[in-house]
């Protein structure tokens, strides 16, 4: 596979959320607002890139029987680092994300890429693969955060967009359903619908 494909494919044809259906848990719970969604997207991208490179460097020394434990140790070390950095620099977001930062350890994207790619590929290819998948995940997360915050609370990154546009004056109301957790699922379902009608070969029988 060409290096460019490693970055490009995860955006659409092999998107971790839409096609591989991995890492869904965290993507739904943190997207009620844009800011936590962006922070979460960045954290996952950093972890998946670094974990991919480290495991790829170690791949010839890991005994196959205990590989899951080795992978978990590497990933959880990285997540502890990310957690501490978030607590130090963006404490309010870190409180908002609560357990979901810790849950990056069990994020299926990270484990899936390690198992499927980093265990058998060279470090540079693994780096690109991690970056591509991290960004593919980020795109969905940020899109969800954008839509849910804009229509749910009428703000973007805390800035009252709808109020400044004067929409409340002409009878506009925020859609309370948008910030409720189930709406995230329905939105992802709709995105999948749209994505698959454009890529017919992905449809299930």
């Amino acid at each position: 596979m060409k290096n460019l494909d490693l970055i490009k494919l995860p955006f659409s044809k092999e998107n971790p959320i839409l096609v591989q259906v991995l890492g869904v848990c965290s993507c739904l719970a943190v997207t009620a607002q844009l800011k936590p969604a962006v922070v979460m997207a960045l954290s996952v991208t950093v972890v998946v890139v670094l974990a991919n490179v480290i495991i790829s460097l170690l791949r010839n020394t890991i005994p196959p029987r205990i590989r899951i434990i080795v992978q978990l140790v590497v990933v959880s070390t990285l997540v502890v680092l990310v957690d501490q950095v978030l607590k130090a620099y963006v404490y309010d977001v870190s409180k908002q994300l609560s357990v979901f930062v810790g849950l990056i350890i069990t994020n299926c994207i990270v484990m899936g890429r390690l198992e499927a790619f980093a265990m058998v590929q060279k470090p540079w290819a693994s780096f690109l693969d991690g970056l591509g998948n991290g960004l593919g995940y980020s795109v969905i997360l940020i899109a969800l955060g954008f839509v849910r915050e804009l229509f749910g609370s009428g703000t973007l990154w805390g800035y009252p967009v709808m109020e400044k546009l004067g929409l409340y004056g002409i009878g506009y109301e925020n859609n309370g359903l948008m910030i409720m957790p189930p709406m995230a699922l329905i939105l992802v379902g709709l995105i999948i619908w749209w994505h698959r009608s454009r890529n017919k070969d992905l449809c299930e029988k």
């Binding site: 957790p181 189930p182 699922l185 992802v188 999948i192 029988k205």
Partner: peptide, 23 residues
């Protein structure tokens, strides 16, 4: 079900609706 929605897509939407009920 529309072909593009079959499988994962419809499962997401149904889970969302069940989530609303559980709320």
């Amino acid at each position: 079900i529309p072909p593009a929605l079959r499988g994962v897509g419809i499962t997401f939407i149904i889970t969302g609706l069940m989530g609303l009920a559980f709320m």
